[in-house]
């Protein structure tokens, strides 16, 4: 019998995934529903990429992290205890992959050592590979909507964002991950503690130190 015709197309015509709650979509992906899994990839690949990019400052490596994270997710989904745990699982997996990559960089002496925790914290040279060498003028391509009308304001805002992004690369990686998860990805302290798997009080301390480091670097501090 022709079982493939109807069964493979079952589902989508009646209910759209966009109308469902995320727990339902995760549950379906846990059972190997490709359509649900693809929805999750589309929904979260941008966030995972941006975290990895700001951690690694390298477009290609960040793409590798996205790819490996979601393939690992596909394989781990069936065993995930609850669908609500998916997001922290995803970001934990991505964060760990970033740490692994940064560690392997440190073992390769030929690479930039500005990522090295001690050197970076001491205010070492700002690594420029990936920014100047990356897609030409990428930083300037996206126009901040609110300041777009005034070229001078726009220019200043861009310069400040670039300074922050560069400075971020000199923040020790453990602090950098926590700061990104809080102030860029807007996770709660409890969620970050679950992602990074350290106590919430330590998360708070790391974020405070990262903020101080960044704020000091953005302008003279007292």
């Amino acid at each position: 019998m022709d079982s493939t015709h109807d069964s493979d197309e079952a589902g989508p015509p009646v209910e759209a995934l966009d109308d469902l709650d995320e727990s339902t979509i995760v549950s379906r992906a846990q059972d190997g529903d490709l359509e649900a899994f693809e929805w999750l990839v589309s929904a979260h690949q941008g966030g995972v990429f941006r975290l990895a990019f700001r951690m690694l400052n390298d477009h290609a490596e960040a793409e590798d992290v996205v790819q490996e994270t979601f393939i690992a997710a596909w394989r781990s989904l069936p065993g995930l205890s609850s669908p609500q745990a998916f997001i922290s699982w995803l970001y934990r997996s991505a964060t760990n992959k970033c740490f692994d990559l940064l560690r392997s960089r440190q073992r390769r002496p030929s690479d930039s050592t500005a990522f090295d925790t001690e050197q970076g914290a001491a205010g070492g040279p700002i690594p420029e590979q990936g920014w100047k060498g990356g897609p030409g003028g990428r930083v300037g391509t996206a126009v901040g909507s609110r300041t777009a009308q005034d070229p001078a304001l726009h220019h200043e805002a861009e310069a400040q964002m670039r300074a922050l992004a560069d400075l971020l690369q000199t923040v020790p990686e453990g602090l950098r991950a926590c700061w990104l998860l809080r102030d860029v990805h807007e996770f709660s302290y409890a969620e970050i503690a679950a992602i990074v798997q350290i106590p919430e009080s330590t998360v708070r301390g790391r974020i405070a130190r990262a903020r101080r480091f960044l704020a000091e670097g953005m302008q003279p501090w007292r």
Partner: peptide, 11 residues
């Protein structure tokens, strides 16, 4: 200032 610039960067 950090909060403002971080917010712009986030968006």
């Amino acid at each position: 200032q950090l909060e403002a610039v971080a917010g712009s960067l986030r968006e």
